[in-house]
């Protein structure tokens, strides 16, 4: 499996992935670790931030648009508007802070059910910060049990050491591609994108001459 960050048009499928979970669990760090390998001192997310990642999974070139949302509860009315049209949702908790784990089942999982537009949307539970093993407050078994209950995939990772970080996104993408309705949404998104420039807008950015 490889990944690259080349031109924006050279992909087969385009998916929207949402990162949710309590504030400070490392959503932004996980994303930046996936994209660029550095995770130092990321400003708290206000509203939402976006990152694009192009990668090849299962022989297909994918464009992932990853939505990194603000964790604090007060912003919940805002974040609820982000779920529309997502094919994948990553629910993140911090394995060293038990409350971030219980909040996933008490609060976040309910949010997901409430706001998802495609019920086939693939969920993945991710326990972050496993590099701090001595401070662990949530066992791997508990994580797996919750994942089973939510019908989601499960991984433990460390944004800091990058352990399992790529796997989070790749396994999620693979699973999404197994679901026909999501696959269709992903390929429609690409078609829409390619059609656009023909609607009266010359020279797509970066388009070369042949």
């Amino acid at each position: 499996m490889g990944s690259s960050s080349g031109q924006s048009n050279s992909y087969d499928l385009s998916f929207k992935i949402l990162l949710i979970g309590d504030s400070g669990v490392g959503k932004s760090s996980l994303l930046v670790s996936f994209i660029s390998a550095s995770t130092n001192d990321l400003a708290p997310t206000i509203g939402v931030d976006f990152k694009i990642k192009l990668l090849t999974v299962g022989g297909k070139k994918l464009k992932l648009t990853i939505w990194d949302t603000a964790g604090q509860e007060r912003f919940r009315t805002l974040t609820s508007s982000y779920y529309r049209g997502a094919q994948g949702i990553i629910l993140v908790y911090d394995v060293t802070r038990r409350e971030t784990f219980t909040n996933l089942s008490d609060v976040w999982a309910k949010e997901v059910e409430l706001h998802l537009t495609n019920k086939d949307c693939v969920k993945m539970l991710v326990g972050n910060k496993v590099d701090r093993e001595s401070e662990r407050a949530v066992s791997r078994e508990e994580g797996m049990a919750l994942a089973k209950e939510l019908g989601s995939l499960f991984l433990e990772c460390s944004a800091k050491t990058r352990e399992n970080v790529e796997q989070c996104f790749e396994e999620l993408a693979l699973k999404i591609m197994e679901v026909p309705s999501l696959l269709e949404e992903g390929s429609n998104a690409v078609k829409r994108n390619i059609l656009k420039p023909k609607e009266g807008h010359p020279a797509p950015p970066g388009g070369g001459c042949c």
């Binding site: 504030s23 400070g24 130092n40 001192d41 990321l42 400003a43 708290p44 604090q72």
Partner: peptide, 12 residues
């Protein structure tokens, strides 16, 4: 806890 987490990532 929230404040601890945020100040170390504000305008660093």
């Amino acid at each position: 806890g929230l404040i601890d987490k945020d100040v170390v990532r504000t305008d660093r």
